[in-house]
């Protein structure tokens, strides 16, 4: 069987929309509802965040969603159960993204196996060092799990190439030197960085994430990368809404169509 992420990114003609949200937020059992609504609204890929008590790479929005999700009782074990259930209802690729410690406590090998078994297609573990991952690479490959690493504007070309070589599925291009959070537009320096990445002709496609919040930033990201990842602005939208489905529908529409 082919990996769903690789399949999606090799077949699609148009840029992909990947949405990040925190598992178990706003309510513990919303993880599945959100996935279904996102697929119905036209998202191509979902990244489900494993909540952590100390999310150092995140801005206030995602910090708050992590805290709420933990207060709701979310854990790695419960999330894997939820993913196994939602896997039978959505077709798009599912990625789990999270800080290392909860995964380490669950046990790396056990986590990789259980995630693959639950139907997870890819992983993003931002604080997993490249050289620590080496020992698990054979296992994730045999489980058909893609593992995407991050690059940032200050990552050197040599290191971008190293990260590209070890990543599978796609490379996660962080749009700015920043924590997560919605921003209005990209600067000329950011555009130059996207162009630089394009010129590298990497083995993997790259998706651009962090700071994407509206049609302008979304379409700019899509003009340079294979697609865009939105997180904070989506989480803001669903945390304030009474009707999840309608809010998600409207969010995807507003992101992907110009006014």
């Amino acid at each position: 069987m082919k990996n769903r992420i690789t399949e999606l990114l090799s077949k699609t003609k148009k840029p992909v929309l990947s949405v990040f949200y925190t598992a178990g937020f706003p309510n513990l059992d919303d993880t599945e509802k959100i996935a279904i609504a996102l697929e119905a609204a036209g998202a191509d890929l979902i990244e489900i965040g494993i909540p952590f008590s100390d999310p150092v790479a995140d801005g206030p929005t995602i910090q708050a969603s992590n805290k709420k999700a933990l207060d709701n009782g979310m854990s790695v074990a419960l999330l894997l159960k939820q993913v196994a259930a939602l896997r039978t209802k959505v077709k798009m690729p599912v990625i789990l993204m999270g800080y290392l410690n909860p995964v380490m406590q669950y046990g790396f090998e056990r986590f990789f196996k259980d995630a693959a078994f639950a139907g997870v297609d890819g992983l993003i573990l931002p604080d997993l060092p490249l050289d620590e991952f080496a020992q698990y690479e054979a296992l994730t490959t045999s489980l058909n799990l893609s593992v995407s690493f991050l690059i940032s504007p200050t990552t050197s070309e040599a290191r971008v190439r190293k990260i590209d070589a070890i990543s599978t599925g796609f490379v996660y291009a962080v749009s700015a030197s920043s924590t997560t959070g919605a921003k209005g537009q990209f600067t000329p320096e950011q555009i130059a960085y996207f162009n630089r990445l394009k010129s590298y002709n990497l083995k993997n496609p790259f998706l651009i994430g962090f700071g994407i919040s509206n049609y302008t930033t979304y379409s700019q990201a899509c003009a340079y990368g294979a697609g865009a990842i939105v997180g904070s602005s989506f989480i803001q939208q669903i945390s304030e809404s009474k009707n999840l489905e309608a809010a998600i529908q409207q969010f995807v529409l507003s992101l992907t169509t110009s006014k």
């Binding site: 790695v76 290392l100 410690n101 380490m104 669950y106």
Partner: peptide
């Protein structure tokens, strides 16, 4: 053993890995 603030060390945490 766990990971916080950039290093692997001894850490007070729940069985789920929350600090």
């Amino acid at each position: 053993p766990g990971v916080l603030h950039g290093s692997k060390t001894l850490l007070m945490q729940t069985t789920d890995g929350q600090v």
